[in-house]
Design a protein around this nucleic acid. Structure first.
Lengths: 217, 217
DNA sequence: ACCTGAACACCGTTCAAGT
DNA sequence: ACCTGAACACCGTTCAAGT
């Protein structure tokens, strides 16, 4: 049973994070799950921060940028962000993990960033602009991937209905004189047109980039 | 010295968070700072989560939306996001605090959201679109406010120069064959054109919204 | 190389009790 | 109403030691 390895630790950590939240991902909990002493983990990771980085790297590594081709940059940028969103959405803990660390310490994240940087440069943006655009793009992907709970797998229809109901109620029971729009639109907030959530965020940021590109020339 | 109150606790917590990071904000640490027993804090906040919500509410409450007027919605939206960014940027811990909690539990955040919702609806977007746009807008404000360290107050020129140097070096010393663009643009990454950072993120998202508005009609 | 045992310095929180 | 004391069940991490 020499199963303990950096990879097996990280996989178990992600599993715990996905199902019980990031706070449940603890050195000691991980150790007992893996049938080992807490200190055993310190052989594979210098400290907890490195473990979190390992988790992030593993998560993002599921996304492999397509090799360069000659399609226009807008298509390739869209493919990049949609691919990243798709990969991250498979793991509920993805956003929290990525938030807790410095993303520049995550090799697979740097790879995606490098790719985005190449594409924005190819789009004709200056260096400084490319840096910011690529940064915001990846940031947005992470935020968009972290969809409301009823867009995720692993819930029955009844559970989703109940979550939506509770959430709408909590919005509707807000004081209507201080939050008039929020209260009035409570229903729209929880019952978004199907498909809108997935595409809208991507459309928004890509339209922004496109518009900056047009303004520049 | 009956100085202990929810407000004084929250203020001290923000102070600690700003200077030493959110992990230093601890019930016990707070208690000793305030010259009181840890359990005293539980009279004012049910638990640590409520304390974090209190911090977030206090931070965002520094932003007061301007009363409605008849200027075009693009101007008012821009003013909203720029104002929020300005207020949040005064506190280094703002982003981390807001990340750790459910923003729908933060009254002052709901007030800003309500305002944004009113403006996007006034812009002519449908209910569902308004919900998503306002959500992304506030999200972006938080992300943009969390600027790289050298855009913040409280650092000498020497400190900033050193931080920039180290960061550039760490980018430049990445393997150039796997991250060619990152390595080549390391300098641009840390030495952004002055003023670009502040405006670019806002321009990007507002251009996106504008473009969606145009497409719709 | 890989893991264990014991110990240290922390956490958040409950519950009964004080004033 | 507001705060304390003692206790509980956790954390991450170090360091020396085992195989």
């Amino acid at each position: 049973m020499g199963k303990l390895s950096a990879a097996s630790i990280v996989e178990r950590a992600i599993q715990i994070g996905d199902t019980e939240g990031i706070d449940a991902v603890t050195i000691r909990r991980l150790a007992t799950d893996l049938g080992v002493t807490p200190m055993a983990l310190y052989w594979h990771f210098k400290n907890k921060e490195q473990l979190l980085i390992g988790m992030a790297d593993h998560l993002v590594a599921n996304f492999a940028p397509k090799p360069a081709d000659d399609r226009p940059w807008r298509l390739r940028l869209r493919e990049l962000i949609e691919g990243l969103i798709h990969v991250l959405r498979a793991h509920p803990c993805a956003r929290t993990v990525l938030e807790q660390i410095d993303k520049e310490d995550v090799p697979s994240y740097l790879a995606v960033w490098n790719e985005a940087l190449g594409l924005t440069r190819a789009a004709g943006f200056a260096d400084g602009e490319s840096c910011l655009i690529s940064k915001y793009l990846l940031q947005s992907a992470i935020a968009i991937a972290d969809a409301p709970v009823h867009f995720r797998s692993g819930h029955t229809d009844e559970e989703i209905a109940e979550i939506v109901r509770v959430k709408r109620l909590s919005l509707e029971s807000l004081p209507a004189d201080t939050y008039p729009h929020l209260v009035r639109m409570a229903d729209s907030m929880v019952n978004l047109p199907p498909g809108l959530y997935d595409s809208f965020g991507v459309d928004l940021i890509l339209a922004g980039i496109e518009s900056l590109a047009a303004r520049r020339s």
